[in-house]
């Protein structure tokens, strides 16, 4: 049927992952960091599904579902923290959060 090599899927996933990674470390806005994290998680899910498909195993999709769960929980907590941050500081700059330094 299809002739997509697994390598291409992996490279696609890596590109997505790296894009998300750039976002996480380059952006100072915590909201964008959270979105970049979603991109990274998505890339990992893609790699799992590609591998599962190549070896005809359902484990890849199981992992994808678990990652989905993780992403949901993470977003719930992350957004709640952002809301609290916005309430208390009116600012989402991650570099301003350095009270634990000393």
């Amino acid at each position: 049927m299809s002739q997509i090599p697994l390598n291409h899927v992996f490279i696609f996933a890596i590109i997505l992952f790296v894009i998300g990674f750039i976002g996480v470390i380059a952006r100072r806005n915590t909201l964008f960091m959270l979105m970049s994290l979603e991109v990274m998680l998505n890339a990992v899910g893609l790699a799992f599904i590609g591998a599962g498909s190549a070896w005809v195993e359902a484990d890849g999709q199981v992992m994808f579902i678990l990652i989905l769960t993780l992403a949901a929980a993470e977003v719930a907590v992350g957004l709640a923290l952002l809301i609290r941050l916005q309430q208390q500081r009116q600012c989402l700059d991650i570099d301003a959060l350095n009270e634990l330094r000393e």
Binding site: M1, L6, S53, W55, Q61
Partner: peptide, 17 residues
């Protein structure tokens, strides 16, 4: 992994099991 191709459909049933 060069010879591997993603050419198989994994059904939801398998995933559920």
């Amino acid at each position: 992994s060069k010879q591997l191709y993603v050419s198989n459909i994994v059904e939801a049933k398998q995933v559920g099991i």
